[in-house]
Computed example of a mutant assay.
Amino acid sequence: MTEVAIRKVAVGDVVANRRRGGEIRVVLGPQTAGAKTGFLGVLTLGAGEFVSEHYHPYSEEFLYVTKGSLVVRAAGEPITIECGEGVLVPKHMPHRVENPGTETAEAVFHLCPLAPRPELGHVDTEDLPNPDHAQLSVQERS
């Protein structure tokens, strides 16, 4: 029997990716925890911020709001998700996440299964708000 290590990762130890908008932090994934089948992270959107429209050709996305409320535009249709509610975005469905409110909103997201390579996991269908933002690994910023 092979032993598998359990890895604990704190959200504060993960650098935010801001390329698509807001703060996206993959807390448990291949790079942070050695995950093989998917990843889980935290999304923080300030008032008026958004994550640009994209889709996942290999993964479903689960999004659960933990603070405030968000609007998910799935295939152009707005779906309001309040704190304590979640939504499942099927693979191949274009979606955009917005915070139209006046306070910061937070959500937990999970995508699975993984794409064969990280660069194949997202297909952007809208201009990125921060295309030059480079995400540094925890090791690179230390």
Rank of each mutant, 00 (worst) to 15 (best):
D13P: 11
M93Y: 08
R25Y: 01
G38Y: 07
A75D: 15
V26W: 06
L45F: 06
T2F: 12
H54E: 13
V11Q: 09
F109H: 01
F62V: 14
R25N: 05
R18Y: 01
E98F: 04
V89P: 03
E77W: 08
G68I: 04
I79C: 00
L45E: 06
I24E: 12
Y55F: 14
L114C: 05
C83G: 12
R96L: 11
L45M: 07
E61H: 09
G68F: 02
E3Q: 15
E60M: 06
K91Y: 08
P90F: 00
V27S: 01
I6L: 14
P78R: 10
V72A: 11
A33M: 10
F109T: 03
L114H: 01
E106I: 07
R18T: 15
A33G: 14
G84H: 04
A10F: 04
L111Y: 00
E53V: 03
V15M: 09
H54M: 04
G34S: 07
V42W: 00
A47R: 06
L70T: 02
V14I: 14
V89D: 00
I79N: 10
V65K: 06
H56M: 03
V71R: 05
P100T: 06
A107V: 02
P57S: 05
Y64Q: 02
V4E: 14
V14S: 08
L28S: 13
H56N: 13
A16M: 05
V51T: 10
T44R: 12
G46F: 01
I81P: 00
G22I: 05
R19V: 10
